[in-house]
Design a protein around this nucleic acid. Structure first.
Lengths: 141, 141
DNA sequence: TTCTTAGATGAGAATCATTCTTATTTAGAT
DNA sequence: ATCTAAATAAGAATGATTCTCATCTAAGAA
């Protein structure tokens, strides 16, 4: 029976990173919070590591980015948010409130990627597509 | 025979904004440069207005955003970039180099929007979609 | 178990993109 | 020409992020 902690450890081992307590809890935070920024991560981590340096949070995030454990998330004018979900997904965004949610729809992904296969972008080596769906949430979270 | 300058003036008049020289040249820069950030705009403007305050650039951009003359452009971890193009378009992005280009394909837009009409996102009032196509440019600009 | 070492962290300083503040200037109406 | 509200200039302030350097420690070897 693998726990979340085991999964997190496995992710770090797969990435050949050291299993420091700080890294474990930061990755846990990234998997638990909704697209947290550095400040939100720091708040979460400080519950168990009151003395963690904010520089460590940033440095850890940078390391995770380099290993592609996580990605940065687009949101104009907001502080950088991070995303640890590896499954293909889109983002629902309300620019007014800054709320950001994952949206999973494999068919939509397939539709876009097939279209771009049939009609490739010239002079561009496509790696992935990201769709932002902008609007308003009509249901309280 | 309308010049670009006339067009710019018309855009500002339509938005009920005053036609200050600074605003004229900033909008010209926004229409001439490729998704400039504030610094790039300031450099462009300083050719004709050496004493412009950087705060004025930012304040002008904010005013243009409020009037929806321009939009901010997503690019994780980069400084805010701005876009004055009003026609529907996607963005081609190379995250490694930071290069960003417009990509026009009305069919792709229609495809996505039709899909989302047929399969609406629950509890979400959709306003627009933005597609980022991530990869590498294979042709020198 | 101990030792070693390269990697990671802590603490605080530095950077810089952006926003704020206040005095001055000016676009546009009359 | 005058007036006024809006816009600008100049510089200070803010805060998210990065840098620096001393210290700590995960993990591998013995």
């Amino acid at each position: 029976m693998k726990t979340q902690k085991d999964n997190i450890q496995q992710l770090l081992k797969n990435a050949k990173l050291r299993l420091t307590p700080q890294r474990l809890v930061i990755l846990e935070a990234l998997l638990s919070l909704n697209h947290p920024n550095a400040e939100e991560l720091a708040l979460y981590v400080r519950k168990t590591h009151p003395n963690i340096a904010v520089g460590t949070v940033y440095k850890t995030l940078e390391t995770f980015l380099e290993c592609q454990l996580i990605t940065k998330v687009d949101l104009p004018g907001d502080s950088i948010r991070y995303d640890a979900i590896q499954l293909p997904h889109h983002h629902l965004v309300n620019p007014d409130s800054g709320r950001l949610e994952d949206y999973y729809d494999d068919d939509l992904f397939a539709l876009i990627e097939n279209y771009l296969k049939e009609k490739p972008v010239q002079d561009f080596d496509l790696k992935e597509v990201k769709l932002q769906i902008i609007g308003k949430f009509t249901q309280k979270k």
